[in-house]
Every structure is written in C-alpha cells, then in structure tokens.
C-alpha cells in the first residue's frame, strides 16, 4: 500500500483511496476508541465519527505520521463522546443470564478457539485491565493507550495529542505506576508468566 499516494488522492476528494486507508487503520482506531471509552458500541460510533471527520479535514494533514494524525482524530471523537456521556449519562444494557442477572461476558464475544475456561480467564483479565484503565484520568489513559496498546513512540504520541514530549514521558510513567497498583488487586487473574515474575520478586 502506497500510503502517501493514497493520502494525496484522498486529499483531492478520492473517497475510494481514503477507504483503502480506512481498511488499513480501522482495527487500530477501533481499539484505541475501545480502550479509551470502554464500550464496544460507543467505540464503534467514535471510530465512524473519527473517519468521517478525518476525511473532511484531510486537507489539513501536512505530512508526518498519518497514524498519529488519525489517532488525534479518534481521540477527539472519544473526548466528544465522553463529554456527551457526562451531559446525558446512560445505563448500559448488559445481557441477562437465565437467572435474570447481568452477564459480564456475553457469549457472542467468545473466541471459538479457546476453551470455556480460557475464554473466561481472558475475559476477566481484559475486564480487570479495562477497569484499571477506566480509573485513570483521561489524559493519562490516552497516553498509555497510544504508547502501550498501540505501540506508538513518544514523538507520535506527542504529535497526536499536541503536548510536549516531557509531558508524555511524565504521564506515561505515572499512568503505568497507577495501573500496576490497580492491577495488584487482580493478581489471581494475571497470566502465569506475570504471576511467576511477581512471586519471584517477592521471594
């Protein structure tokens, strides 16, 4: 994929070229929105909004990392969504079990390649991490999602959220420490490799 050529075509209004970029980046953009918002439906909405906004403002892209530029767009879409949530709080509708209780791990999200036990563990671990992420301040969460989940380097993160490099380093360090403290309460959910590491350090 010749990204620069596609971007130039998209800048001249070629929607097909832009859609090729969408197909390439949609998983990253969706995952970023998912980790910031913590909800699949809201993340899907924010992703769609982000791509629409990106196409409309692609003329303002002046080179550099396109992924970082896209991440800025999706971050803004997530912030908008969170502001909307704050204005009009809603109660999520979790699916019910046969007993009428809310189901935390819907069946349709299950991976068919995993055993039920593995699936349950993976779901619980993911929920634990997402829970700790949700407890972080928004500016910390954004940085940690971009750097540690999306694997972006510091410069890309800095250009995405338009803050100095030093601020990125500071926020990332503090976010990691807070996450570690939060996840300490979920040790039994952690993968065996991490548990061994923790136990080894304790001895």
């Amino acid at each position: 994929m010749n990204e620069q050529a596609l971007i130039q075509d998209a800048q001249s209004g070629n929607l097909d070229a832009f859609n090729t970029l969408v197909l390439h980046y949609q998983d990253s953009v969706f995952n970023t929105a998912l980790r910031i918002l913590g909800d699949d439906d809201l993340a899907a909405d924010a992703t769609q909004e982000a791509f629409i906004s990106a196409f409309k403002s692609i003329a303002s892209y002046r080179g550099g990392s396109f992924k970082a530029w896209l991440m800025r767009t999706v971050t803004n879409a997530c912030y908008d969504e969170l502001r909307r949530q704050k204005r009009r709080p809603t109660t999520p509708l979790e699916p019910d079990t046969d007993d009428g209780e809310e189901m935390d791990s819907p069946r349709w999200l299950a991976d068919p390649n995993m055993t039920p036990d593995q699936q349950a563990e993976a779901d619980e671990l993911e929920h634990a991490i997402q829970h700790c992420l949700d407890n972080l301040p928004l500016e910390f969460k954004t940085v940690v999602v971009m750097a540690d989940i999306q694997g972006m380097d510091y410069t890309e993160v800095a250009s995405s959220i338009r803050v100095p490099l030093g601020t990125i380093k500071s926020r990332l360090a503090r976010a990691r420490l807070r996450l570690r403290e939060c996840l300490a309460g979920f040790e039994e959910l952690l993968p065996s490799s991490f548990r061994l590491e923790v136990e080894g350090r304790a001895q």
Binding site: V22, I52, R180
Partner: peptide, 29 residues
C-alpha cells in the same frame, strides 16, 4: 519491575478486530 509489569499487561490486551468495516459512503461525507 512494576512499570515493566504494567506495560506487559497492557501489551497482553487482546487486539480486537473492528466489528464492521468503517469505510465511508459518499452520503456520509
């Protein structure tokens, strides 16, 4: 070690596939 562990957890997070294609239609834009 704490920082490394936290980073490891985050990297362990499963990468979700987009639930659908987010390609744009001409009407959308």
């Amino acid at each position: 070690d704490d920082l490394r562990t936290a980073r490891g957890y985050l990297r362990q997070l499963p990468k979700r596939r987009a639930p659908r294609n987010f390609t744009l239609t001409r009407k959308m834009v």
